[in-house]
């Protein structure tokens, strides 16, 4: 499972980043935590995208994961980082599994729109319900690790990076299994896939559930890194758009791509916001269009090209 180049690179890169993080200033550690938290959701969206499915509503699962952490914190005082992560991923995954029975029959724009509708229902409920924090959301207390309250953010950073590494390895493995490989095949001709004796519905259902577990985990990790959840920046449709944006930015080429893409996104946003607070959306939108037009394979394809040139290919 760990023999291929990607797995080795993920392991090596993960260890390197964890070591480097010990010496990095806080704000850089923050960027990595936000970036890698989001990357988890992007990995899931990438799996869907390879099959030709784009969800314009995954903020639903992202938000579920984040709010699971918040509710656990406020109602039961759960602060353990692993319990929180698990709860976020499970709640979102369960919702995704159940809704998957319906969504697996949808394609194209209908798939995108039904996801949007579902996420907006949750948005409408949260915004209008005071006990769910309405527009303000909740502040989240610092996470503990096996009962210990860390002094710095570094331990959380190590955990997020490790979770990212494990997720990347697992998804990378999954993509090599038979069901995992049923991506382009489904996109191109579903009937042919059925004739070959595979159930398209099952394949899509599994992919969908995987993507929702990852999105929920991402939401939980994001909530813990930020220390805050609110509907506008966790559930609204613009968040779903943002997730898709990072997916396209990263490119579907490899499970490493979402991590690089998310980091680029995070840094881009930080600087766009600092340098041009009134035009940061413009910068993001323009980047997005440029990618769609000139770099359909995302940043990953660019890296591949550069790497290829270096090797003299």
């Amino acid at each position: 499972m760990l023999e291929d180049k990607t797995s080795k690179f993920v392991l090596f890169g993960g260890v390197l980043i964890i070591l480097a993080g010990a010496f990095a200033p806080n704000w850089i550690v923050n960027q990595f935590m936000f970036g890698f938290s989001r990357a988890l959701a992007i990995v899931g969206l990438m799996v869907l995208w390879r099959t030709g499915l784009v969800s314009f509503g995954h903020a639903f699962y992202f938000g579920l994961g984040a709010y699971a952490v918040a509710i656990l914190d406020i109602q039961l005082g759960v602060t353990d980082v692993f319990l929180r992560l698990l709860a976020g991923a499970l709640v979102a995954g369960l919702a995704g599994f159940l809704l998957g029975f319906i969504l697996r029959n949808y394609r194209d724009i209908f798939f995108a729109m039904l996801n949007t509708a579902i996420s907006m229902v949750l948005f409408g409920i949260v915004v209008k319900t005071e006990s769910l924090g309405s527009t303000d959301g909740f502040a989240i207390s610092m996470s503990t690790i096996f009962g210990l309250a860390p002094e710095t953010k570094y331990p959380l950073f190590v955990i997020i990076t490790s979770v990212g590494v494990i997720a990347a390895l697992l998804v990378n493995y999954y993509l090599k299994t038979t069901y995992g490989r049923l991506t382009t095949a489904i996109r191109d001709n579903e009937i042919r896939v059925e004739y070959l004796g595979f159930s398209v519905a099952h394949a899509i259902h599994l992919k969908y559930t995987i993507s929702t577990i990852l999105a929920g985990g991402a939401g939980a990790l994001m909530a813990m890194s930020l220390g805050q959840v609110d509907p506008e920046s966790m559930i609204n449709w613009t968040v779903s758009g943002e997730l898709v944006f990072v997916t396209i930015l990263s490119g579907p080429g490899n499970v490493i791509a979402p991590f690089i893409g998310s980091l680029v996104f995070e840094v881009l946003r930080t600087y766009a916001f600092e340098l041009a607070p009134q035009a940061w959306q413009l910068i993001m939108g323009a980047t997005f269009l440029t990618i769609i037009f000139f770099l359909p394979g995302g940043i990953w394809s660019l890296l591949e090209k550069l790497g290829g040139r270096k090797n003299g290919k």
Partner: peptide
């Protein structure tokens, strides 16, 4: 993407 650009 266009939407984001036009908004700003």
């Amino acid at each position: 993407g266009l939407f984001l650009v036009l908004e700003d």
